[in-house]
Design a protein around this nucleic acid. Sequence first.
DNA 1: TCTCAGCATTCGAACGTTCCAAAGACATTA
DNA 2: TAATGTCTTTGGAACGTTCGAATGCTGAGA
Lengths: 352, 352
Amino acid sequence: MPRSSNPSAAKGGPVTLTQVARRAGVSAQTVSNAINSPDMLRPETLERVRRAIDEMGYRPSRAAQTLRTRSSRLIGYGIQPALSSSPVLDRFLHALSQAADEAGYRILLFASPSGGPALDGYEELLGQHEVDGFVLSGTERGDPRQAWLTRRGVPFVGFGRMWSGRQIGDWVDVDGASGTDAAVEHLVAQGHRKIAFLGWERGVSGAGDDRAEGWQRAMRRHGLSTRGRRGQSVNDTDAARMAVKPLLDGGATAVIAASDMLALGCYQMLRERGALPGRDVSVVGFDDSPAAELLSPTLTSLAQPLEEVGRECVRLLLARIASPDAPPERLLLEPSLVVRDSTAAAPHGAAR
Amino acid sequence: MPRSSNPSAAKGGPVTLTQVARRAGVSAQTVSNAINSPDMLRPETLERVRRAIDEMGYRPSRAAQTLRTRSSRLIGYGIQPALSSSPVLDRFLHALSQAADEAGYRILLFASPSGGPALDGYEELLGQHEVDGFVLSGTERGDPRQAWLTRRGVPFVGFGRMWSGRQIGDWVDVDGASGTDAAVEHLVAQGHRKIAFLGWERGVSGAGDDRAEGWQRAMRRHGLSTRGRRGQSVNDTDAARMAVKPLLDGGATAVIAASDMLALGCYQMLRERGALPGRDVSVVGFDDSPAAELLSPTLTSLAQPLEEVGRECVRLLLARIASPDAPPERLLLEPSLVVRDSTAAAPHGAAR
DNA sequence: TCTCAGCATTCGAACGTTCCAAAGACATTA
DNA sequence: TAATGTCTTTGGAACGTTCGAATGCTGAGA
């Protein structure tokens, strides 16, 4: 298959280092230096070279740079099959991309074929130092990718700690427990005492257990009972609707949900009973998905600091690339409580 | 900054073509041919080379290939600031990535800095044939990127037609009108006649007007009046709630919404009136977002064929790269109606 | 026997950059 | 004057691949 024609500015193909050098009356190496270590040049020469670069619209060829330096300045990101499709992922991806950009790196997508991450693909992707490192997300349980990357000596950073087994490598994660803890604080300050938690089934999701844990410890700290106040459901509004019923029957005046989706189920059950979120029962979600702001009443939710996560992932990865043998670094970032209309003072009679 | 150490299999750096050649007892060129045009080799030689490749775990260096062939086999994708954050985007991205993968291409993310797409970035990105082409999405109104790419002779394909001005370049889009038309057909078949449409304000979104248009033409075809049956709202459940009120007051037995978010607003208003979606009033959404399946009752919605869109984007782009001067190709794909519990036969008294 | 064609393979160069070692310019010192 | 050192610039090679042309080999036709 014939492939040609890559007009860059006008004609004759892309401008090269050598052409710029000729124009500026210096050697190619000097032009290279002008770009990579400007203080090596005499100011006068530097100026001349810079002008030539501008005039000719020169941009270095990434391919040649990669070939020579053995660094592609590319970061691989294993995009998941849209199964979990949390509203979090695309915001994270944007943040990640932006952070990488600022460091002069780019994100190379890598779709694991649906049906679990197949390693053959990674094999191929990394075949010949195509990316400098990897960002993994959604590394819930004994992810084979981590071990594989470690074995190959490929730098990587995970978004999400591993919940079981030995921790390997660097990661950045959001402290879910701290988030639900803060939610309890917020509710207690408004006079709530019977605060329920609506989460996923125990042991299914590390992040889910973590969020439950924060609620529990905060309740204990305030001397509040958690007995009969923990509901379990799959991530489905309908299941959540049913799961929240006994909690309300038990007199809960506030519900902290492990996701906005669960909170939505909670809304539905409240509506059915003619109760209004916020006024009658306070509700807190998790993730601050776009829907949170659009529901009525608007939903108080815990926002993950995705921009920061993205930035830190890039920072840790670059640090790892720079010094492969440094001790692993792990970061736990705080979610922030975005207070909206679904939380308010406890109804008067209920405080006790 | 010193950068080194890229252990591939074991030690001594990546395996090269030349090393494989030595092992197989042939020239480097022959190994290259074994990979790129196998039928040029004598079967016996081919076998020998292949074995050597496998044994040594050889993978060609993309950088060197790119440098030599002037093709990076990379496709740029301009990821949007998470403003609109339609639930569609990350599914599309996954489909796109997968389709590219199958064609031996990869997706390179490019985050436009928040606050509109800045072209300087593209300038830099394309600086030296870093990507072979571009996929643009969300090209609503006179997007400067299109003109820019055209001027530079960079192949690109849009996901989404341009709604105003002259059409340029290739694009793939989903036929929203056809979708809402099909929704009307579905509802009419179930005995509905007073079918309302809940959309965005006129002229704000091309896609929105398109969806309204399909409803209108199908209604006309069936001799049904659209007068007073069109509601307008911003994309917010609360606004949608209010906008759907007059439609229901007008006796509508079914509502087609321009997005699942609007449909959700519709659900809320129905609940407030003690009506049940599906049983009392049928509701159809658009986008088949994850939430559609999780609502209760589950929401009938129009699913965009994102996998197909992704595949076609890649196909069109590769065709454009292969022959830059071929006439532009444009594709309109049909959304499919996913029927769930929110649509059912019209209540008895209401028909007519 | 020689030529010619067809096939399989090889040789040398090139893609555009950066690394390394060395050379040139100039001032300082002995 | 020559030796020394510092600062700036240069030449040659190399990164790993593919292109284009050339080579050697085989058998058919004259």
